[in-house]
Nucleic acid binder design. Sequence first.
DNA 1: TTGACGTGTGACAGCGCTGTCATTACCGCT
DNA 2: AGCGGTAATGACAGCGCTGTCACACGTCAA
Lengths: 355, 355
Amino acid sequence: MGSKKRDSSRVTLSDVARLAKVSAITVSRCIRNPERVSEDTRVRILRAIDDLGYVPDMAASALASKRSNVVGLVIPSLTNSVFTDVLKGVYDAIEETRLTVQIGNSRYSPSKEENLIRTFLQQRPAGLIVAGVNHTEAGRKMLEASSCPVVQIMDVTDKPVDRLVGFSHFEGAKAAVRHLHDMGYRRPGILTARMDPRSRVRLAGFTEEAQQLGIFEPARVVSTPLHSSVGLGAQLFSDLLAQAPDTDSLFCNNDDLATGALFEAARRNIRVPEALGVCGYNDLDISAEVNPSLTTIATPRYEVGLQSVQMINAALDPEGEAAPPPVILGTKLVPRQSTRRRPMPSVGIHSGETT
Amino acid sequence: MGSKKRDSSRVTLSDVARLAKVSAITVSRCIRNPERVSEDTRVRILRAIDDLGYVPDMAASALASKRSNVVGLVIPSLTNSVFTDVLKGVYDAIEETRLTVQIGNSRYSPSKEENLIRTFLQQRPAGLIVAGVNHTEAGRKMLEASSCPVVQIMDVTDKPVDRLVGFSHFEGAKAAVRHLHDMGYRRPGILTARMDPRSRVRLAGFTEEAQQLGIFEPARVVSTPLHSSVGLGAQLFSDLLAQAPDTDSLFCNNDDLATGALFEAARRNIRVPEALGVCGYNDLDISAEVNPSLTTIATPRYEVGLQSVQMINAALDPEGEAAPPPVILGTKLVPRQSTRRRPMPSVGIHSGETT
DNA sequence: TTGACGTGTGACAGCGCTGTCATTACCGCT
DNA sequence: AGCGGTAATGACAGCGCTGTCACACGTCAA
């Protein structure tokens, strides 16, 4: 082995054209708008492409058309499985298209996000997908001024920059509180970490719903700027117990925290769901497996990834002009053992429960 | 808002050149080989670049130089956190460079991997990073014939295609078995799922070490072609108990399976570590948090991502010619509660244990 | 028959950059 | 004085593709 250097001789459009006995333009057209060449030539061209193993040169195409086939994806984390699920959806959808993805990791930093947006935009992307609806002022301006379709994801707003596919964290959190109340819990607390905008909204939803139900108690709110993790969930739960020992239930800002709380409860011999109800948020794979299994709010992360790409793709189609209305996907309460204090009302949604 | 269309007027090399009163070539050189232009002009050019906000057009550059700045990354999963950790390392390292990443998800399919390799290679990437050392014959041929640096990651082999940064799954598995033996367990079983090449090697390592210790028992090997998950771990553990009820310890092919086994043991009131020792593989975040905390083999996933990019980058440097020797990172046994049957020997490595 | 129109195809230029070679200026050496 | 050598810069062509416009047909209504 050793050092490798460049090769040469690439099959180009005109090679194909020569073989198919047409001009290069026609081949190009045949690839991009098959319906604009005659059946006859199309067949010939496709055969020639196949015979020669022709592969379009994206750099040349991007240069000539002033349009790349790159979709920029700006997400705040590459390890949080919430976003890797989105990623999976994005990649699964992109496979069907002639687009490619480029990921930018903002690490939950608005200014990093702004830089990523700038960098992407400078590359004339085919489209941009950004997590969240909160950006720096400059970031938002750039998105608005951009000449490509922009899809905001994972949240809702009444003033999207362009397109949007998300779901309401507010409603999700409210549903969780309602569920705790339905199950007979009257002293719910909330555990929240890394206060990104979406976490904040969930806290607001928790607060509003609890207030409406007359069961809100500020002392039962525990938050930290640290990034959430299972370990942190245990920690925060301990903190909560210290400051409000009579707490009878928990809404955790995500399943990691909830899982940690569950583990801590087990270590303290606090019986779940009898003495403590626990509800998470996201419905990660593990949530169905822990003991007791975790009640949570399922979020359509994969679906968001999928649909955001489809939106970009639709926007690129010269037909589909105007931006479609925002797509608001639903969240779904998944009741499991961790809140099953009283006989379940007839809600059965998820399987996978042990008992 | 609504439909967006293209803009125009981009700052180009010659705009910069005009302002700096040099030719376009000189600007290009100044950007790529700053040391080849005089101090004087360099300063002028850099100021001009700054003033105009010039950003190089990668498409044009790729077209002219027949070399892109794209590093292809082929991994078998986008959700398995083992690979998202690698991904994180890759992205953290790539930020320091002028390169960009493009991910291909092979979904554990060798033929999909082959296609991805082909697709990437056709795009004249700056480099290629592929997970594993097992490829289809055609895939390997393409990699060997490729004109760009190739880094195989996450495994070891004595015949790397080009460069390699990985770790030995064989040794990791052996260490796990040895540890179980050290802790007094004599009837270890193994749970393995999704038999990708690395899983297979771990099974082989388990088998060899157990045989050498005289504690191997074929009936205690449980495997399935399904993808591993926490739920599957519970399932496989149940299967193992059915066919070898006297099993006293478990090496699980990864921490997901191990976690599932731990949960199932809890449901069956099997005491861990007293009645059952459990050792996982990978050391995911959650492994330190479960009850009891999970003994496991830590793998340097993030480091692998980081170093693989650095290797590509070094290879691109016109100086650093020959391929460096393979980098074999170590795995590390992290003893925790789940195997603490007898007083710990003096191995203490990890903190974070609750006791 | 004429012309307006639609369909399928081609000629041409040029996207923004880099590889290659040429050029200039200046150095130190015989 | 004449030479080769080096450092700094420039001229030119062209990477492979696409946008634009032009053209050759055939069709159909007037």
